[in-house]
Design a protein around this nucleic acid. Structure first.
Ligand code: ZN
Ligand code: ZN
Ligand code: ZN
Ligand code: ZN
Lengths: 121, 121
DNA sequence: CATCTTGTTGCAATTTAGTTGCATTTATAA
DNA sequence: TTATAAATGCAACTAAATTGCAACAAGATG
């Protein structure tokens, strides 16, 4: 991967904040710095490289967040949206794949909503 | 709610099959019977009336499925996509809201993929 | 049964997220 | 410095979902 200006900007953004960021947010924030297609493509590369992972939020929007470790085993963890402050983030707990009789479960996505620690204090 | 032809068609569809049906599927299936806007609006009404519930699938598409009971308490259950046959459905097991320190969890969505019982036998 | 009221529908236009093809630019290695 | 393949910009496009408004029809009323 070439270290382009655009790539550095996006990488920096994910290093600044821990939250999961929607593509739409990034496209708007950097609309004067890069084309939206570029945002999509860089995020796509980050995912392939194992730097980011993504999920679909309650509004059907794709959101990316940083991967914690270089674990080869895809960690299963929930994602959370705070109703009050609107931040969306990874919850750093390990979820074991549920076992359901007569089914084989391969992937599991959890999406939670409620109130975050900041908004509770 | 008025019992219009269009409403009956959609209601019948959900009574026929247990699976979760995407709006796109319904719009296509009934393209000669009703306008797509009508599909959206009837599904919306069904949800408000407590007849259907919905979730966003792995492709970001909205899917609707029948509510099992007239329980006021919103039942929490996982949704499942079979990689082999493509059917998407509710898994009729009760999930308790996860408790996460310093968070208040109000809603929980689970989306699972794997292989269903039909495809395993 | 005829008529009225308003919930419901059809349609066309619009919004929004995401994708694609291709010409141009640029990081980086030789 | 030059070559070259990766990366970007741009415009056009696809697809899901929404909106405004005129027209229609379910079903209540008399
Ligand atoms: Zn919060
Ligand atoms: Zn995450
Ligand atoms: Zn199956
Ligand atoms: Zn369900």
């Amino acid at each position: 991967m070439r270290k382009t200006k655009q790539l550095k900007l996006l990488l920096n953004e994910f290093n600044q904040k821990e939250d999961a960021i929607s593509i739409v947010e990034l496209v708007n924030k950097f609309s004067d710095k890069m084309n939206k297609t570029t945002v999509y493509r860089i995020l796509d590369r980050f995912e392939k490289e194992g730097i980011l992972h993504w999920f679909i939020d309650n509004d059907g929007l794709k959101r990316y967040a940083k991967n914690k470790k270089k674990s080869n085993t895809k960690e299963v963890h929930p994602h959370f949206l705070c109703e009050d402050c609107g931040t969306t983030s990874c919850i750093p707990i390990n979820i074991k794949l549920p076992s359901i009789p007569e089914y084989i479960i391969k992937t599991s996505e959890h999406f939670l909503t409620g109130q975050c620690k900041k908004c509770l204090s």
